[in-house]
Design a protein around this nucleic acid. Sequence first.
DNA 1: GCGACAG
DNA 2: ATCTTGTCGC
Length: 218
Amino acid sequence: MDDYSTYYAIQKTYKEKVIRQNQLPATVQYIAGADVAYDDRTQRMIGAIVVLDADSLDVVDESAHEMEITFPYVPGLFSFREIPSLIQAFEQLKIRPDLLICDGHGIAHPRGVGMATHLGIELDIPTIGCAKKRLTGAYDKATLGNERGDWLPLELDGATIGAALRTRKDVKPMFVSIGHKVDLDTAMDWVLKACTEYRLPETTRAADGLVNRLITNY
DNA sequence: GCGACAG
DNA sequence: ATCTTGTCGC
């Protein structure tokens, strides 16, 4: 468990497959959130996808999958740890979402292939990276406004890889980036639309709530 | 060599 | 991620 070269190679091929243009359906009816919870005692994890109606944000479908933890947590290879359970959960859904908002980064990643991008390419659906913490890239913290909707580009090597977006007044910003098949502006629009009362989007909160309920009872 | 480092 | 009490504010 110390030679990750094969995984870096996979990321290198995936980086070329990312679609940065908007490829959402004309009408986005369903959006989804994904999250995973762990039980280190049993070395098991539960991944879940929760689908919400894009307008009302009511939960319309959800699915979870429990399995063994097979990959350690390594910043930069995070997706390889969570994706197996999320793929399984996704396949069991009755309602396929038009857009998936992930709890982690998209292309705002050292090699351009974070969780949201990796999942988007494997599932071939539009995805957005929406992380609570910065992984790479920089922005002028002191210049970022404090109002909901205020944002600054997250830059790396002179390129914009994402955005530090304030989803509520006076809270720490969220880090939004393209996952797959969406552009950054559209991604920020959807994240803001999904953030009604909390810093985190309702999609992420719904998935987080589900996996934590399940992990507690097993 | 010294930090930084999604969940 | 997960482990955990109180506390400040709307």
